[in-house]
């Protein structure tokens, strides 16, 4: 786009310039020289400084990402382990709680059983006592009845004018009471 009119005039004025500047071989040497200079400069700068640096940066990034991924994996592993440990602790605690509960239950059961046994013994004693008392009362009642019967019989016999034989009466009373 460098078409200013003086330049155009200069181009027209120049004897050697053909229509196409690309085919003006007088400038080729100049262009090739500066092209080689430029290429060598770019090549040296790229191969010595830029490309190793960018390659290193890319490799660093790759390593960092890999390391981070590994660390994340590690953390995940540790979280899993922690969860497992937690689960184990929970299970142990639950088992312990069950054990303590069973123990307590057993202890209480034993106490209750003992108390029941004591109570049973006491009840048995009382019952026996009662039964004994009842038996005594019943015996004494029977005796009293026999006495009363004997006395009544004696009195009846005496009132009828008989001679009361004490042993006979006793035997008769006993027979009657048995019957």
């Amino acid at each position: 786009m460098a078409t200013t009119s003086p330049a155009a005039d200069a181009a027209h004025g120049a004897v050697t310039a053909p229509g196409m500047p690309q085919l003006d071989f007088t400038t080729w040497g100049n262009q090739i020289f500066w092209l080689m200079v430029t290429l060598v400069v770019i090549y040296v700068v790229l191969s010595r400084i830029a490309l190793p640096r960018i390659g290193a940066v890319l490799e660093d990034r790759q390593n960092t990402i890999l390391k981070d991924l590994n660390t994340a994996d590690d953390f995940k592993q540790r979280a899993l382990e922690a969860e497992k440990a937690y689960d184990a602790a929970l299970a142990a605690a639950r088992a312990e709680a069950g054990r303590i509960a069973a123990q307590t239950r057993a202890a209480i059961q034993a106490e209750v059983d003992a108390a029941i046994a004591r109570a049973d013994v006491e009840i048995a004693e009382r019952t026996a006592e009662g039964e004994a008392a009842i038996a005594a009362i019943r015996r004494s009642a029977t005796d009293s009845i026999a006495q009363v019967a004997t006395d009544t019989t004696e009195a009846l016999v005496a009132a009828l004018g008989g001679k009361a034989d004490a042993t006979e009466i006793a035997a008769a009373v006993a027979a009657q009471m048995k019957g």
Binding site: A2, A11, T27, N30, L35
Partner: peptide, 21 residues
């Protein structure tokens, strides 16, 4: 005309002349 090689200084193009190239 936009492709014309021109020296930055002076008029003559030697192989070493600084040009717009």
């Amino acid at each position: 005309d936009q492709f014309i090689v021109k020296p930055l200084f002076g008029d003559v193009i030697h192989w070493y002349t600084p040009t717009n190239v």
